[in-house]
Amino acid sequence: MRASAMPPAAPMSVDIRTLESTDPPPDARVRSPAGMVWARFRVNRGGMVALVFLVALAALAIAAPLVADLVGHGPNDLYRTTMVDIYGLPKGPNASFWFGADSAGRDLFVRVIYGARVSLLVGVVATAIAVVIGVVLGLIAGYRGGALDTLFSRMSDVVLAMPLLLFAIGISSACSTTPQGCVAGTLTPGVNLVIVIIAIFSWPAMFRIVRATTLSMRESTFIEASRAIGMRERNIMFREVLPNLLSPVVVYAALLIPQSILFEAYLSFLGLGVPDSTPSWGGMLDQASQLFTVAWWLMVFPGIFLLATILAFNVVADGLRDAFDPRASE
């Protein structure tokens, strides 16, 4: 009687000391998520070529003074007698001036290498600022919701609604009238100003990506589980949610860098970017636009470098996206 009243199919009690794992032995090497992304990126030939190009470019940019020493011409050294003809036109490439000279008689090769400094600096720093603003505001807006979400989202809407080039021109000319700059001397004309302008206009897109991802992440079980162990909300945001944003943030940041470089080139082309004494690809192209019918090198060399750099960043971004999500490319 009693036996049949006992629960059927009851699990047997288990002594945990007798439990031998039936699981496969642990991997000899434990790969971190970053390690797996790198392993997948490494087999992408185009991505690797682009990455090598960018690393070489960065090395050249850092070593620009050494390059100048090697060639024997500084970026602002004037060779008016040797490299400018009697009509005031620059002379083309030769054994000493590999890329020719500009109308002031400066070595274009050295200036192109120096120009990489400005482009990479602006691209990387402006993107970094935009990423920090976008990620922090996006995390808070997506995770907390409520009034802060409304505030930050409307702020980003306002920025996205502004006519970007007009405002950029306005801000940069307003801040460039005196050497003291504007906003109580914190924004001085030059590279700083360009970086700030680009960052101001770049963060909303990053913000939107981060906010949307956080919104969906917020409802996942492991976030609930971290609340269940009593983690602080701030720690949940930055330690639990943030690592999951890595893939969209890294990929989008890689796309934002070439955009920022192009933006700097636009501004310099319009004469609103960095001063002429700081070599910049955009500024060189501006000068070339008046002379390229007689001095093709002024347009070709900075143009090729700008094009190759933008292309390389985009190829790397593409490769990163595939490496983060191998299924996306199938």
């Binding site: 998520p33 589980a225 690592p243 890595l246």
Partner: peptide
């Protein structure tokens, strides 16, 4: 699986 953070050891 869904209660553990996928990207942390």
């Amino acid at each position: 699986l869904s209660a553990l953070h996928p990207l942390l050891r």
